[in-house]
Amino acid sequence: MTSNIVEIDNLSFGYNGRLLHKGINMVFPKRKVVAIMGGSGSGKTTLLRLIGGQIKPTKGEVRVDGHVVHKQTRDGIYQLRRTMGMLFQHGALFTDLSVFDNVAFPMRELTDLPESMIRDLVLLKLNAVGLRGAHKFMPAELSGGMARRVALARAVALDPNIIMYDEPFAGLDPISMGVICGLIRSLNDALGATSIIVSHDVKETFLIADYVYFVANGEVTAEGTPEDLMQSTLPFVHQFVHGEKDGPVPFHYAAPDYRAQLLG
């Protein structure tokens, strides 16, 4: 048995024939917080979907706890997903359920816990994200940042083994940011889980990640511990870490020459 809970092996994937990932290799060791960083549109969210088995790779494979994800039957995939929690980039709260019922949803659907215990657990999770007082609200009554915190509480409702966070820091004020940052780390350590963070917030991510992968142009362009990467002289990493506009990472999506397009 390896000590890696998730392994991505020579993975290629593309939407509509256009390759987005070109042979990606990553490993996610047990009990670590691993970050995936990269520009907007570099396929980070897609990578999480591949780990969750929502889409099938074009080439290569993803293994979760030793099982090749895309070769599982429907039941097999559901079995694997029961050990995962995922925070969606836009929250994806169930709009017809209250905050409380959203967090209770996975417990009610997947466990036989009595309602009184569910209540305690839900309030506990909501308290951790600072929203116990908002448990009666409907998702439409929440701000964007509050909705994402509720979604986070829901993602960890069943104390999963693998927690995937898609942009956990987006849209949070500095105070919540600090709290959520600490929460991700402490949840990881308390549960003995493995966390995968997709983010482009360098400061917060480097604070809690044990290991970081940079993706660009469909490949892993750099990897290492945050300390290594801070020292890195790779122009790409340097540009990203220090948020410089000019450098090897283009701000623009591939496009024809601007002048030619305007005049043409």
């Binding site: 929502q54 836009h90 169930f94 997947l110």
Partner: peptide
Amino acid sequence: LMKTTEQLSAMEMMAV
């Protein structure tokens, strides 16, 4: 709308 706002995806990922 549930599909557009990824609620169905979220459900799938919860093994529901």
